[in-house]
Design a protein around this nucleic acid. Sequence first.
DNA 1: TACTCACAG
DNA 2: GGCTGTGAGTA
Length: 633
Amino acid sequence: MSQFTWKDLIQLNSNDKSYLSPLSCMAHVDVNAFFAQAEQIRCGYTRDDPVVCVQWNSIIAVSYAARKYGISRLDTIGSAMEKSGNKLIPIHTAVFKRGEDYWKYHDGCGSWNKDKTKRIPANLYKVSLDPYRRESRKIFRIFRKYSDRVEKASVDEVFLDLGKLCFERLLTENILSEGSDNFKGLKILREVFQQGEYNLESTLPLVPEELKLLNFVGDVYNPENTPLIEDWDDVIFAIGSQIIGEIRKDIEDSLGFTTSAGIARTKYVTKLGSNFKKPDAQTIILNKFVQDFLDGESFDITSFWTFGGKIGNEICTILKTPETHSIKFIRENWPDGPQRLHNYLNERISELSNSDEIHTLDSSKTEALSRKLYDISRGQFLLPLNKKPIVKSMMSNKNMRKDSCCNIIHAISWIEVFSGELTARIKELEQEYSKLIVPKTVVLLATTLKKKVYRKSGHFVHSHNGITSKDFIQVGTKLMQDIDNEYCGSSNSSFYPLLNLSMTISNFEIFDTNKTIVDMFGNHARILTKTNNSIQEVNEDTQIESNVLFCKSCNLNFETNKGFQEHKDFHVAQKLSDAMNGISENSKNLTVGERRLLLNKKRKYPDRISPKFNKKSKEKGGSTPGILSFFKK
DNA sequence: TACTCACAG
DNA sequence: GGCTGTGAGTA
């Protein structure tokens, strides 16, 4: 007798319930040393070349060829070069230059180079991960060719729910050579299914002999050498392993990446499986061997997803797990359901409540936690694929070296970089999904030694072609000016240098580009003006413009918005000018982009040139004549 | 909503 | 360890 019913089998075909079936089959696929492989492929090296991916002085990904020298991600590039006898091939990530809105590779340059002229200085550049996101999308598209039951778990990992695919293959496709006499058994199963002559609650027939000869692709975890295929779950897993084998081969043939995969009933176990043998391998963990796998390999509690940090450590403290902290301990000590475990967790937490050992766990979390631990230790914690929205937020961020951002010009130059990066990323997503993607909010966060300052924009105004880099620069600059005004205002306090500057966009509105976009926005605009929310937004915006037509530092009132705006521009120009003078002593601090930025400022206001004012500012002497002259006080 | 913490890769 | 991203929790 099979242990499975028709219902179990048919549930595999359901999009949202398949993961609950005892026959369910999931997979996790991980690209090996992703960034390093991406660089190896881009630069035309082979898998045997010891490529590492570098960011400033650190290694952020080590190819398997380079691991043979004992190099790990924690090595600095210098020590790694030594370990490898200079055989290492370090490739730096692409970078943006301050003041430029596009990234570039500077192959042949890198921090490992003793010759300083060939360095990529971290104070003037920002790492771009865009190339990896691109490759990631190419890889993801291949998965999608096979199935829409794919979850992108990170830039280099996916989960697949293979239920539907396995179901289809088992019941309709050629998984065996038709010639064989024994094909009969499978045929009967298919006929019964097609005629609907089954009872959902009744058990499936025994697995026909010929199906037991199905090949697994990859390594089946099987320490005791038991027969592999006995019941239908084994058959499903064999088919699943074939599918994953095909997809991985496709990825390798068309893009050149090697991957590792795990195939099992639950997401948690697939993740352990893909990590089990690397690189370029796949491991199948059959249901009947799950316990052997978890126990025999004595997985640490902290090696399970979400338990990798403080929570995992606190669990170990609370449960007083022995040395190895193996998950087996939980299964053996709480054999009869999560209730006792729940009680014990609560007892121990109150015992330890006054100690300094527990910070993140408390009794509000123990019920869910006990169930999770109980199930995880048995390899039966079921999780569905996680449907992720296209985007939630996007951040462009730069940690500053001491001289990376010491005035508003620098800040705006970084905002140019951020704007370019964010725009490019949005455009790629738009192309991929054939949508128009528009963020509603922009947040600028500046961090100094003493404080963190946020500024958030109101609603975005955008053309029907979507967002442009200029839009972000405009908003970002405005927010930055605002920050600068408040913290660096009239008194020249020591707000700069910034330790960090970041721009985050969020609150996306996503429009279908199938419909005529103009119509969409026509409607949208009307809706916006009607709702309460948007009226507030509009007011908020106009308040920024018109509420206070008064300049505190000059003690001047303005009658028109326009006039006030121009006056504010004057103050910014003053800042820019001052900043430039500060820099001019050491003019190499200014990048080409920054000079261009200043020139652009000029071009933007050609109608404001006032010879009189120009002269005056020159007379004041010292300061750069250019900028100030284009603004009215 | 603003902000912090925790976690992951 | 540097860089992105998400989700939970807090006030």
